[in-house]
Amino acid sequence: MLSPREKEIAAAYARGENYQRIATSLHIAPSTVRTHLATIYRKLGVSSKIELLKALEGEQPQSKNSEEQAMLISELALSLEEAISRERALSEVLSIISRSAGNIQEVISAVLGYALELCDAQFGILFAYSPEKGFKATYIKEIPLAFQTWLTEQDWFHVSPNTGLGRMVSDTDIINIADVRMEEIYRHGDPLRDATANLGGARSFTAIPMVSKEGLIGAFTIYRQQLRPFEEKSLLIARIFADQSVIAIENARLVSEVRSAKGK
């Protein structure tokens, strides 16, 4: 039922390879891999990677009624559309970085905007970090005015090691908090946590470390105002955009250095 190319892609995908790796090994575009997988799923009558693996091993898929089949097809279609949206957003961000000529404001605004859209979050902040001065909210997107005012008044500020940002500094890893109001630090009245929950209206929160060759330089944070923890897919997106923010900041620094050198 499958063409030789479809068999290659199906086998690689069932082994756990992602779109990008398959595309690289076969010298095709990731979007072409998606198109082939949609055809493969339809031909084999499967709706998951597990079912795909079983089908490749010769096991016949269980029959599904029309309602189940329609539901599975719609889920697959939605997943493919989400993947397309993620790749399109990343492509747009890379394009903005390449033509920004050091305009960091334009890049970070775009990065935060795409991150909020793809992670289905209400607002986001890019914090700069200094071991001596602490954190400062340098770029914001869709943040409630009361929380924005509070952050502006703080300027640079140090955080408790028990806050999300404080834990991120200690571990240099993603911090994913299901409910900011359920942690002990909120009940103890920590200023940052109080502002996040009560002025920002945040419930679920994630902080992604921004790391350059010099070490931690900031944090990429996104917030949901509903109690809905960030899933692995959202964390992956957030990490990608945090990495792109680091690249943009480094590019801006290099452009500034080149301009300064020319002016001497």
Rank of each mutant, 00 (worst) to 15 (best):
I108L: 07
A89G: 08
F220Y: 12
Y139F: 14
L151N: 03
A261Q: 15
M1Y: 09
I73W: 04
A83Q: 12
E184P: 07
H36R: 15
V159N: 09
N65T: 00
E75K: 09
L2W: 12
F241N: 14
A146L: 05
P161A: 04
L192S: 01
V93N: 01
L151A: 10
F241D: 14
S130E: 03
I22P: 00
E106W: 04
L145F: 01
S98Y: 01
G113L: 08
D173I: 02
G113A: 05
T163D: 05
T149L: 09
M182E: 15
L227W: 10
E184N: 10
D243W: 03
A23I: 12
T221A: 10
R203S: 09
E153M: 05
I222T: 12
R86S: 11
D171R: 12
M182N: 13
S256A: 10
A195F: 01
A146K: 07
I175H: 08
V255Y: 09
T138V: 08
A178Y: 03
Q62I: 07
I177G: 08
G189P: 09
P30C: 05
L165Q: 03
G113Q: 09
F127P: 04
Q69R: 14
Y41H: 06
L192P: 02
E68H: 07
S85M: 10
K43L: 15
V255G: 03
G124P: 00
N65R: 00
Q105I: 13
T163P: 09
A252L: 12
S91D: 10
D194E: 06
A178E: 08
A110T: 09
I249D: 01
L52A: 11
S260P: 13
A89L: 04
G215R: 05
A70V: 08
L216Q: 03
I185G: 02
A261M: 15
A14H: 07
L116M: 06
R15D: 12
L52P: 10
L78E: 12
S212H: 11
D120Y: 13
I247Q: 06
H36W: 11
M182D: 14
R34V: 14
A115I: 12
L126I: 01
D155R: 15
N176F: 00
S91C: 06
V33L: 02
I240Q: 09
K49A: 15
E214I: 12
I247F: 01
G102K: 05
G263V: 14
I28W: 04
I84E: 02
K262N: 12
I9E: 00
A242G: 14
G58P: 10
S79Q: 15
H188F: 02
L80F: 14
M182H: 14
Y129K: 02
T138W: 05
G164A: 03
Q148P: 04
E51W: 11
S85D: 11
T138G: 11
Y19L: 05
N251W: 04
